[in-house]
Design a protein around this nucleic acid. Sequence first.
DNA 1: CGCCCCGTTGACCTCCCTCAAATTAGGTGG
DNA 2: CCACCTAATTTGAGGGAGGTCAACGGGGCG
Lengths: 241, 241
Amino acid sequence: MEDRQDIHNAGVPVLCEACEARHRGICGALSPDQLLGLSKTSSKQKIEAGAELVGDQETIDHYSNVLGGVVKLTKTLSDGRQQIVGLQFAPDFLGRPFRSESAINAEAATDVALCSFPKATIERMMKESPGLEHLLLTQTLKELDEARDWMVTLGRKTAAEKVASFLLLIARNIDPTAQTKSGASFDLPLTRADIADFLGLTIETVSRQLTRLRADGVIRIENNRHVVVDNMSRLEARSGI
Amino acid sequence: MEDRQDIHNAGVPVLCEACEARHRGICGALSPDQLLGLSKTSSKQKIEAGAELVGDQETIDHYSNVLGGVVKLTKTLSDGRQQIVGLQFAPDFLGRPFRSESAINAEAATDVALCSFPKATIERMMKESPGLEHLLLTQTLKELDEARDWMVTLGRKTAAEKVASFLLLIARNIDPTAQTKSGASFDLPLTRADIADFLGLTIETVSRQLTRLRADGVIRIENNRHVVVDNMSRLEARSGI
DNA sequence: CGCCCCGTTGACCTCCCTCAAATTAGGTGG
DNA sequence: CCACCTAATTTGAGGGAGGTCAACGGGGCG
């Protein structure tokens, strides 16, 4: 919404030139023509941590690509108990296609960069190019796999294993070197309260388990948010694979 | 595999005539030509309760439609802890497209009727008719919604609420009249052990919670497997919506 | 009849939650 | 740079929901 000059430049989609979504995201499935058409109605946005992106029960008329930061998807019971049901990182697609109402709440967990475009445009393009729908199916299947993996964590793991699993998940998504190196280093994108909501635990239990991991030398914590893992396999051993 | 005469009749897909999958399932997206082509390589099968349909880590070369019965999708930790991550009812599509390995185990929870066809055939048709891929996307999105709903149950509900939620889920999927009537009546498709694996509880806790619901007059249980719910809203009130 | 599987019930214990207080981090104004 | 304030996090003490272990009941089947 705010950087209008980007929209002006859209004659050639400068907007998209350096964009990650074109390589690993949804936009890679678009023809140059379509990309141009989409970029005309797109706008890059900066959202600050804590802001609500998609309200529960709210009508959705825009979709977005996550370009940076972390988005949390939450569900809430009527008495206020909350569960995070998914985290989205760049270059994930944000939005529930083919339904005007979402039963889910999306909120910026960190400062977030988005590229949004009207729902109608993308749904029209989906009819034109099957490749786009295919890519969307691929992402949805990936999210389904992740959701089911997390169901095991929620249903069958101990608090200690849950926290270790969470740290592994974040390390793999935030620190790009975590795949190759034996260690990792990253800022936690979630508060302790968010972590608790993600793991189905309380803040206190999360804190105690982190303390224990630190006391055992598996992780180091700096300024409450920054985590250093010297030996990833020691962390994996505690995640109850 | 067994009823070969069905395959013979496939000049006109008699096999498909009365099939639910043609109306509410995947096959509804196929042209008559495609349906004919698919039916030539399809076979209806009866699987008995307990049989494994898709092994963990196993290569998948067939997909199926569930025509009857209930299939459970499970994941297992290395030490044997198990979690059911999904239940499939008719006319769900069974199989994980675009990946030759499944990280999931599929098992017949009850006696199951399937219609299977080669993976290659359906993937070719998917390229030809975008409608098929669209339907698959729709089902995948539905499964993702269900998985996320269940994550709330696993992460944030009490044992009592979990069991009530499970009974509601089954009533809605097994007893077609449960939507309209105020009551429901159905056979549980899962053993107590399966229910426990679905809810992230132990057998004993499931049993105790069922006993409690019965003692409170919310449900009646006959022969351990048959459940009668006189007043669905009383059950809903205990499911922690 | 006896065996086996499934489900129920009871007694006990443990892990995690609850409640409360202390400590730290971060931001703001002097 | 420091004092102050607020929110976030940690730590502690105690209790309860659900797990563990063990015994018992009942239906199906050889």
